[in-house]
Nucleic acid binder design. Structure first.
Lengths: 116, 116
DNA sequence: TGTATGAATCGACAGATGTCGATGAAAGGA
DNA sequence: TCCTTTCATCGACATCTGTCGATTCATACA
């Protein structure tokens, strides 16, 4: 992640009250919107869900192309969006790249939306 | 909402486990993505936040144009997106339309993202 | 009836996004 | 050294999206 990138969602949570607690300012609205945009795609939601459900909680791109019904380059693109947004991490072993959920990342964005 | 519209988020919650509990199927991924897309815009996040913070928990379009820095037709567009997605309701009194948060709508989408 | 006000709709447009096929890069094995 | 496999990147394309100005609609009031 370059320095110009949006804050990953966990930093956002560390600083902010839930959306309805008080009016959100432009900068934080921008950050939260980016985090939500990364999530707001059916292929990426299924991808996240598949990674979470996969053996050992990790999966490679090749595990995902068939069940998603998408070409390798497209899956690679979606995975990159989720890594950049802070939802996935990658660990490389040989020619394989294994992706895994970042613990707490989904809970962080979730807690920003709650009203209670 | 026409019959062809996506399920509002509350129905989604009534039927589904959180994203990481088990692999989500295509149809539900599509629904959840639509609900998230409605939220994934800085202007709409600020709009929701302003409505929640406004006196009596409701606001009209004319209350929002100035603080958002957007033209009336644009605000009207964003409001419609949020109403269609089930986050806002409208009550019309004279020429004024007052928008208000749907109780529990944000909590519903939030709970679908939680992993715990 | 006519006018004023708040809001929805329409048409246009630039920019972002999801998808694909083709190519390139890195690592391992014959 | 060469081939294979896994993945990233690139270029192209159609579609979607956010924004605006102009118009239309509905309601209230003079």
């Amino acid at each position: 992640m370059s320095i110009a990138e949006p804050l990953p969602i966990r930093d956002l949570q560390a600083c902010c009250a839930p959306l309805t607690r008080e009016p959100i300012d432009s900068a934080h609205a921008e950050s939260l919107a980016k985090s939500l945009k990364a999530l707001a795609d059916p292929a990426r939601l299924r991808l996240l869900s598949m990674v979470a459900a996969h053996a050992d909680g990790e999966a490679c791109v090749c595990d995902l192309t068939d069940p998603l019904g998408l070409v390798q380059s497209t899956v690679s693109h979606h995975v990159k969006v989720l890594v950049d947004a802070g939802y996935l991490t990658v660990s490389k072993r040989g020619t394989w790249h294994y992706y895994r959920l970042v613990p707490g990342a989904l809970d962080a964005v979730s807690s920003l939306l709650t009203t209670v």
